[in-house]
Design a protein around this nucleic acid. Structure first.
Ligand SMILES: [Mn+2]
Ligand SMILES: [Mn+2]
Ligand SMILES: [Zn+2]
Ligand SMILES: [Zn+2]
Lengths: 143, 143
DNA sequence: TAAACTAATTATAACAATTATAATCTAATA
DNA sequence: TATTAGATTATAATTGTTATAATTAGTTTA
């Protein structure tokens, strides 16, 4: 039920120390309900941790990724965004404002199987994103 | 039939000058049959063009992208890879050696439609990649 | 053809995201 | 308490890419 509590449990179980900075980063990720960049997290917490280094944010996001608490969404030039892991889902992304919306859809097992069959790869996973224009941006375009 | 010839036609039609550097970059993209980075192209051509700037490679890859001759494949940290546009296809990527293999599959119209319906987005396109282990790397792992 | 204009290339500097390094601090353990 | 390992901080370095300004090449106009 309490996502933060569970996340802290996961850290404890994997022998990762729970520092105030880690607690705050996790809390922010969960509460923001969005897909923040490392820098956004850094800036959001600088009131509470005026001396925190940006390296700490990156280091801890990597730790969280390694224990499976967050997923990193990477893009070409722009900075990575981080998603607190709940259930599997895809993302729909606005090409104009960059908004990212969660989108649930059954996994594409058939595509994975065909890819494995055709290429001889041992398939692990896949990445799918939908790109378009969000309702807000579509509204602005009209007039 | 001749991909290079067609590509040069496209450039001519869109009023883009055909310089020796552009000719060579296009030729390399078509003949390499792979997905090279800007730097790989730069290094491959430095014998023929010892004074070519890496900026020229980037500039021209952007030009080619804008007129629809190449697609840019972007990844998180790593550098972009460029794919001479032929028919629509997806990519299967080896997580160990980075190999990229073309993979043909009918478009995922159904996913796009559902995404549009659920999120209210005007959907343009999507991105799908399959990740796993290529046969070469799988072989090495075994012993 | 000569002059004027525009596009492309080059060399180099700047940028931005991320990672590495070394010093310091904190917490756990013996 | 002393020792050790882990975490954080401050800062430097790295890397892919883009911006800038000067130069060169090609095209258009007079
Ligand atoms: Mn998400
Ligand atoms: Mn391809
Ligand atoms: Zn938008
Ligand atoms: Zn491989």
């Amino acid at each position: 039920m309490n996502q933060l509590k569970e996340a802290l449990e996961t850290l404890k179980d994997t022998g990762v120390r729970i520092t105030p900075q880690r607690h705050a980063i996790l809390e922010y990720l969960i509460n923001s309900m969005s897909h923040p960049t490392a820098d956004e997290i850094y800036k959001a917490l600088e009131g509470k941790f005026p001396n925190m280094s940006v390296a700490t944010v990156y280091n801890n996001l990597r730790v969280f990724r390694e224990v499976g608490l967050v997923k990193e969404l990477t893009f070409g030039d722009a900075s990575s965004r981080f998603d607190f892991v709940t259930s599997e889902h895809y993302h729909v992304i606005c090409e104009h404002c960059g908004k990212i919306v969660d989108f649930h859809y059954p996994g594409l097992d058939e595509v994975e199987h065909l890819a494995a069959h055709v290429t001889g790869f041992k398939v692990d996973t896949h990445r799918l994103e939908i790109y378009g224009t969000c309702p807000d941006c579509a509204g602005k375009e009209v007039h």
